[in-house]
Computed example of a mutant assay.
Amino acid sequence: MGATSGGKGRPVFTTDGADKARWDGDLDNDSSAVMRAVGRQIKVWREEAGLTQTELGSGIGYGVDMVSAVERGYRLPKPEFLDKADHVLGARGKIAAMTRDVVEARYPKKVRHLAKLEREAVELGAYGNHNLHGLLQTEEYTRALFGMRRPAYSEDEIEQQVAARMGRQEIFTRQPAPLLTFVQEEVTLRRPLGGRMVLRRQLEHLLEVGHLRHVEIQVMPTSREDHAGMGGQLQLLKLQDGTGVGHWEGQLCSLLLSDPKEVLILEMRYGILRSRALTPRESLAFIEKLLGET
């Protein structure tokens, strides 16, 4: 869990944008410990197999720089890296067995609990007013977003943040499928973060995701004169036991809200937002129009 805020004992998490409250953005200690442990194991198995870093890299389809960074605990390997290394080094599942620890370590400490709740949710609703919601972002868009963070992230921090956000998108293929609804401000579909081609591919991705049967994306036109989302972006999660959790976004921090009265307020606002936005079908047509103009 993260730090607490306002004396109410409520967990504080970093925002879904590209920020966090610390100036020095070092990787979490527990994530770093996992990275070092995984790196040591891979090095031991590689040396036991009599392979150089270059030879291992060639065998698993990665460059020597990546192998070196993993072994030194500077980079968190992807699951496929572990699977291929396990096969090439003849580890008989011992390297692949670290996949779960690596997956958990992808998530920065302050969003780890939020990611866990998303995995358990049967329904998720989110409103984005400044950038596209993290679950809807392409890898290029996410990398551009974290790359423009000030103070700047290091390359390793950007990679960790990107991997964590992409990992959260497993929610789209989970079975049974949760109901996922999104309301996005029109400006978030027009702002070319990362450049015009990044935006084009992002719009194409939205159309692909928006056609999934358990996903509804709605666009909030800028021309709307009455708006229930002036308090900022938000997220609502309905869990298997019927309880609801709210996630409120701020500039340097965000809150997970479990008080039923507070969650009810967010649900009310989100319901009004959905009623004022374009319908899902109208929204997909709107996105297609923007794609043609981009």
Rank of each mutant, 00 (worst) to 15 (best):
D24A: 11
G271Q: 02
T279K: 05
K84Q: 03
K43H: 14
T181N: 06
L89M: 09
G93E: 12
L82T: 07
R168Y: 01
Y127G: 00
G244S: 11
L290D: 06
R75H: 10
L256E: 12
H211V: 07
L199V: 04
P280W: 01
E71R: 06
T54P: 05
N129L: 12
M230K: 13
M148L: 09
R40F: 03
L255Y: 05
G6I: 04
M197R: 13
R201E: 13
D241T: 02
F13T: 01
D65V: 10
R100G: 06
M166W: 03
V88A: 01
L291F: 09
A144E: 01
V187I: 14
V245L: 12
P151Q: 10
R10H: 01
P192S: 04
I158D: 07
Y127N: 00
R22D: 12
D241V: 02
G167W: 03
G39M: 01
L256A: 12
E123F: 14
R106P: 00
Y270C: 00
G128R: 04
A18D: 13
D226F: 10
Q202D: 04
Q175E: 15
E123Y: 13
D26A: 13
D24K: 05
S223Y: 05
G244T: 07
Y141F: 12
V183M: 08
L189V: 03
S31V: 04
F81V: 02
L239C: 06
V209N: 10
E208Q: 13
G7L: 05
K238L: 14
E123D: 07
V198C: 06
G61A: 09
M166Q: 12
P260L: 03
A115D: 00
G50L: 07
S275A: 12
W45D: 00
G210R: 09
R150E: 10
E208R: 12
A33S: 07
Q169R: 12
K8N: 09
V111G: 03
Y74I: 14
E282K: 02
L193Q: 02
S283G: 04
G167N: 07
G195T: 15
T14R: 03
I42S: 08
D19A: 08
V209Q: 11
A121K: 02
E155L: 15
Y74P: 03
H227V: 06
T173D: 15
D156A: 15
